[in-house]
Amino acid sequence: MQPFRYRISGLQVASAFELPGAIPAAAADVVADVQVALGPVPTALQGGDRMGPNWDMVGEDFLLEVPSLGRFHIRGGREIVIALDDGASERDASAYVLGTAFGILLHQRGALVLHGSAVAHNGQAVAICGHSGAGKSTLAAALCREGCGFVTDDLCAISLDHDAHPVILPDGRQLKLWQEAIEKLELTERRGEAVMGRFEKYFLAPQDTVPAPLRLRAIYLLRDARPPLVEGIEEVSLADAMHALDREAYRPGLRIKMGARPGLVMQSAQLLAHVNVFRLTRPHDFAKLPQTVRALRAHWDALAP
């Protein structure tokens, strides 16, 4: 019996060790969807041929090596087993359990996983996608400071509700920000513990966390306003939006490698039947965040519900 229980992206997670940043779930009598445990992990997958420099995949079996941390065995969308390197701690492993490992697991479960953060506005979710360092979490934090609810950070898992409408399941994790952003946004009093010991990135104590699945209204692709891109918000054509979902997926190549193409196209089409995709081009500058927040809010007001 795993002692720690969490609800992450709609899944009951039972873990052998604490996962800081995840919101504990009470229902210990519910059967867990996902088990996180320490245990033996093979150094290579049988029948595999090293698909990546530090990872391999054979069917629903995924092996990921994280330097100076350990090997992660992610199986069938329901199990993450970790063999820690000497000197590595469970505490450090938790950052990767909640990051890359969970992203892979969600891909295994067939979810459409975007590399993005999401916030709630007027009872609907909007996702902000972009590469690492693009400023997704910073913008989400700025939006939450101005009254939006916090839905998810970094990993944005989308599924369909009973009406086949795309929803984001709040992942129950806390927003994570680099120290520089915390200082610039004046959020020091809400700074929590470090996400991973050696790095200056911290959890942010939750403000308004959204508890229930929210319908996804729009996806914004975050871009820096540098030539030839000029500041503004513009809708992306349907064809470009299809490509964007591949490109903005959490670890883009993975979605393609793990899913059969017709299924992916169907999944994207179902999403785009309800969700508009926009390119949000703004100066990558803390001082200009307030104007980006204003522009987004004005844009939401103009969007049909």
Binding site: G52, P53, N54, W55, L64, V66, P67, S68, A95, Y96, G99, T100, G103, I104, H131, S132, G133, W178, V195, M196, R198, F199, K201, R251, P252, G253, L254
Partner: peptide, 24 residues
């Protein structure tokens, strides 16, 4: 490129030491 590195290794490059990144 940070993005190319992450696309290839699947890792969060913000949570690996600079030295480990070089090895990879």
């Amino acid at each position: 490129s940070r993005h190319e590195f992450e696309a290839s290794t699947l890792l969060d490059s913000g949570f690996i030491s600079h030295d480990d990144i070089e090895d990879l």
